[in-house]
Amino acid sequence: MIQSDRLTRPGQPEPARKTGEDGGPNAPKLERPVAPNPLKDRLKKVDPDQAKKYRQRSGQ
């Protein structure tokens, strides 16, 4: 079977692409997952007023 249409029809011009700094393609823009940082997470849980509330008797 001959598919003449396919062979003869001129193709659509490609849309102009933005290029990266090195002329190559850009990476797709995706939301990067934030790496878990247990230390920062723990810091955010600190009650900033805890030291104000903390009163002790003297010890030895």
């Binding site: 940082n37 247990p38 230390l39 723990r42 810091l43 849980k45 600190v46 009650d47 900033p48 007023d49 805890q50 030291a51 104000k52 903390y54």
Partner: peptide, 29 residues
């Protein structure tokens, strides 16, 4: 700022679920 003293206290908290010292150990610092 007084909240820095709260961080100091949290370092000394002996509950591993709350302690900032334990968080440093867990993150190999």
């Amino acid at each position: 700022d007084a909240s820095l003293q709260a961080v100091d206290l949290a370092y000394a908290d002996i509950d591993p679920a709350e302690s900032l010292y334990q968080a440093l150990v867990d993150s190999d610092q």
